[in-house]
Design a protein around this nucleic acid. Structure first.
Lengths: 183, 183
DNA sequence: ACCACTTTTTCACAAATGTGAAAAAATTTT
DNA sequence: AAAATTTTTTCACATTTGTGAAAAAGTGGT
């Protein structure tokens, strides 16, 4: 592999494409699981995933949703050693463009600006997540649901409401009550 | 200013130090305010700040606390144009090591690895914030308070509880009730 | 169209949190 | 030290959310 080709040159585009792989997950399958590292990093091009973990009480808690055109990596923080503590599960059929981690590391070496770009993407996504989640804490159930509809306008009809309730920190019956009051 | 000196060389350390400024804020003063950009980026070396904004109902909501040795920048996301929507206020006397944004940008140009380091710090901090805030949503008031004590072990006795209650998404009276039950 | 299965809604009651006002405690000022 | 001010706690009652069970609605397969 070459050393340091410019990001937007034809060579590096070809290089990136040559390493990219298409994968699909069926509903219920995992992109990564708690305790196991994933083989891949990459983008979701179609479908919806959820990140969830088990609380101290043993309940499944949905932490966030990931939909089209988002970057996925179980080491999106600087220390790449950490194994994920949450599960990333497809809740619809999903398609991805991914890279083997080994290939991805080589791309980062070969294309200098790539690292900077990806770090910017990661910062952007984390900011977005914070922006979405933090306000929920001070809102009541109705406000939370309305926030959810704004934040994820295209997914409410594509996924089970039990995940939405969990994401919003309320019981499914409460979510049902909220939805009734809104109609 | 020179072009591209190595990060850990004596030259770049000197360069960084030469641009660093010490500032202090008294309790109640702002590092930045909603709608106004700050002149500085840098580290807090002593004291506690809180980030807060006004909810739709007009209530002050404390979003998070910042204590010693954390990086502060009102453009810690990639698009540096955005003006902050929240306020960053000193809630104790605070000391900082900061840089004028102009100087800071020159340092980023001159010391190539600096950008990468700072991006890693930002990613780390955002991850930490997410880790702290997200679980609160699915917890009851007691669990939230206990989480807070774990997450910020050294600040509960240094700041008013009204801010803590706001951070935890509950009324001060509820926090008081929780504290009573714990004793 | 029917059955089996899953998801969502509804209900009555229990438990947790909010509300507004007042008391108590802690802190600052004189 | 006393007075004034701010912060924290307490209380009675209102409102919201959780609980467990059952009904209703929706989905997929034959």
């Amino acid at each position: 592999m070459q050393k340091c080709v410019p990001l937007f040159g034809a060579t590096s585009i070809d290089l990136i494409i040559s390493k990219s792989i298409n994968i699909e997950l069926k509903k219920g399958e995992f992109f990564w699981e708690a305790g196991k590292t994933s083989k891949y990093v990459g983008f979701i091009t179609d479908g919806i995933l959820r990140v969830y973990y088990y609380s101290e009480k043993g309940e499944e808690v949905t932490n966030y949703f990931v939909d089209e055109n988002h970057w996925l990596s179980d080491w999106d923080n600087p220390d790449k050693s950490v194994t994920p503590i949450a599960n990333l599960q497809a809740i619809t059929h999903c398609s991805f463009i991914v890279f083997l981690k080994k290939d991805w590391n080589e791309l980062l070496q070969a294309i200098f600006e790539l690292n900077d770009i990806i770090q910017k993407i990661i910062i952007k996504h984390k900011s977005k997540k914070l922006e979405r989640r933090s306000p929920l804490i001070s809102e009541d159930t109705t406000e939370r649901y309305l926030s959810f509809l704004e934040q994820y306008p295209n997914i409410v009809n594509r996924i089970p409401l039990s995940y939405v309730a969990s994401y919003l920190g309320m019981k499914q019956q409460s979510l049902s009550r909220v939805r009734k009051n809104i109609r």
